[in-house]
Design a protein around this nucleic acid. Sequence first.
DNA 1: AGTTCGATATTG
DNA 2: AATATCGAACTA
Length: 202
Amino acid sequence: MPGRTDTLEGVLAGPVLEAAPRLLGAVLRHDGVAVRLTEVEAYDGSNDPGSHAYRGPTPRTEVMFGPPGRLYVYFTYGMHHCANVVCGPDGTASAVLLRAGEVVEGLDIARERRGAHPDRDLARGPARLCSALGLDLRDNGLDLTSGALVLGPPPDPDRVSTGPRVGLRQAPDHPWRFWLADEPTVSRYVPAKPVRKRARSR
DNA sequence: AGTTCGATATTG
DNA sequence: AATATCGAACTA
């Protein structure tokens, strides 16, 4: 049954704002590396101007409109991949962006993929996380409900921090970013750069 | 500041 | 159809 907070399927089928914080501490395993999630962001599909799915399904966002528990991977900036866990019932396009995590398995493989970096930086940031796990567009649509994603115990509410999402140009300023307080692997990325990309005329 | 490619928007 | 623009980042 959806609504259960003790099974992966139940959590993912529920409201994305409940699923997102519940995924903190969960472990995602892929291709020899496992990452314990420490930072995520919720995207509420058709109701969320910040979501890729806001304007309805496209070839790229199709996966988000499918059943929960699948992986939505997109390619951006001509070089990076980012991964989301699809949430909500089939037909609903909400998803949770995986922003950062701690490598808990396959450290050597992750180091190889990421190059020389402190261990805490291996999966610190959504594109780095994908790189460490070896995720790319071929993994778009991957079913995570058969062992790839394992829920942890519900995180202590006192340790879950919230704040505005990173890097969005136009979206309601909702605190839909969730992270585990005091985790060194949480991205320190500061998005608050004022938008000043206009071409200057005179 | 530069990278570098796909999706989306705009134009012919 | 062709072209223009910019992005749920990261490295230097």
